[in-house]
């Protein structure tokens, strides 16, 4: 290419620039349009992911809390609540409160506090 110092472009410069610009894009027009349409129209699985991620995060928090709660009893069984027998089954109206108590660090056991002194039977 040689450059003539006038109003025209250097000899061959315009053709070289056109060739340079005519290189094929890595993405062809049809493929570009397809990808763009895909980004414009959210697919069902994308909507599914929208609530799956928060649900997974909530589950992770619950597991972490349960794990932390169990770790508090690593040194041995927690004391059994006073006046509560293991495997008490309550017949009749539900008692006022329900206690979750780990007799064994590995096995959570639910105990139900009877609302009346004679309200339960084994």
């Amino acid at each position: 290419m040689t450059f003539q110092d006038d109003d025209d472009w250097p000899d061959g410069f315009a053709d070289a620039l056109r060739r340079h610009a005519a290189r094929t894009p890595s993405l062809m027009p049809a493929e570009a349009a397809r990808r763009l349409r895909e980004r414009l129209e959210p697919r069902p699985e994308r909507r599914y992911r929208q609530w799956l991620a928060p649900a997974a995060a909530a589950a992770a928090v619950v597991l972490a809390l349960a794990s932390a709660s169990r770790m508090r009893h690593e040194d041995g069984p927690a004391p059994r609540p006073r006046g509560v027998e293991r495997s008490t089954v309550v017949v009749g109206p539900l008692p006022d409160n329900i206690v979750l108590w780990w007799a064994d660090p590995e096995t959570p056991v639910y105990f139900i506090l009877p609302s009346t002194p004679t309200g339960g039977q084994s």
Binding site: A21, P25, L27, P29, A32, A33, R34, R37
Partner: peptide, 30 residues
């Protein structure tokens, strides 16, 4: 209409990529 927009993308894609290449280069044009 996303289909109509897709046709516009097909029509103008190459010209727009050429313009972007002239300014920023190949790597980031598309």
């Amino acid at each position: 209409d996303p289909g109509a927009f897709g046709r516009l993308v097909e029509r103008h894609w190459c010209e727009m990529v050429r313009l972007a290449r002239s300014v920023v280069g190949d790597a980031e044009a598309e």
